[in-house]
Design a protein around this nucleic acid. Structure first.
Length: 201
DNA sequence: CAGCAGATTGACT
DNA sequence: GTCAATCTGCTGC
């Protein structure tokens, strides 16, 4: 199987929900100081800018913080949450429309040793890349990478593994109670029965 | 094993 | 000053 890098046109479609689902099963890699780390994407979350109260850019709020989200699809948007956690997003759609996909969990496959070292963990377990904050730390992501295009330090590859829709579970997003009714939208996607996602509900 | 509090940085009102 | 798309560890049962 020859892995191919996803073309920009993949990200620049209007349906952020569809992109979120299709990113499941793809391989996310970072190369930092010559160290290649990453794994298979097993959990994502969709944020549809202007119409989504949960999104930082709701109502086209364009600020210094959300600026990268307004760039064209295929850009990274990295956000500091609660001061200590970095959250990795992939910007989608076209310039000026703040759509993004949050990467929530990976199944570690590349550079596991390196990721363990970064997370200061003795052995591989679900907490290595389970959750956006842990995931960013394991991949060595810093906010310097925010606003950068995919394809250099951060890459997503397609190994040809499509996830059948039967194997995609959707559920409400968490941690965004302030978003009111939009918090109930089932825009959190994960691969069914994959041990690297949080337990199925 | 469930539940809760603490950590800590940057941007917005 | 307050809030934010979270994780971890400690508590008590």
């Amino acid at each position: 199987m020859t892995p191919t890098i996803l073309p920009l046109s993949f990200y620049q479609r209007s349906d952020v929900v569809a992109i979120s689902k299709e990113l499941l099963g793809k391989t996310l890699l970072t190369e930092i100081n010559g160290q290649l780390t990453g794994g298979t994407i097993v959990e994502t979350e969709a944020y549809a800018g202007p119409e989504d109260k949960a999104c930082h850019a709701y109502g086209n709020r364009r600020t210094k913080r959300t600026e990268p989200m307004f760039q064209a699809g295929g850009t990274c948007y990295i956000y500091t949450c609660y001061g200590i956690h970095l959250l990795l997003n992939i910007v989608t759609y076209i310039e000026g429309i703040p759509h993004a996909v949050l990467i929530r969990a990976l199944e570690p496959t590349f550079g596991v040793e390196m990721m363990l070292k970064r997370r200061n963990k003795p052995k591989l377990d679900r907490t290595l890349t389970g959750g956006p904050g842990a995931l960013s730390q394991a991949l060595g992501i810093t906010k310097d990478l925010s606003g950068q295009p995919l394809g250099t330090t951060i890459r997503i590859k397609d190994h040809g593994t499509a996830i059948a829709s039967d194997n995609v579970m959707s559920s409400p997003r968490v941690g965004i109670a302030y978003a009111e009714e939009d918090a109930l939208l089932p825009w959190r996607f994960r691969i069914k029965d994959n041990p690297w996602t949080s337990p199925a509900k």
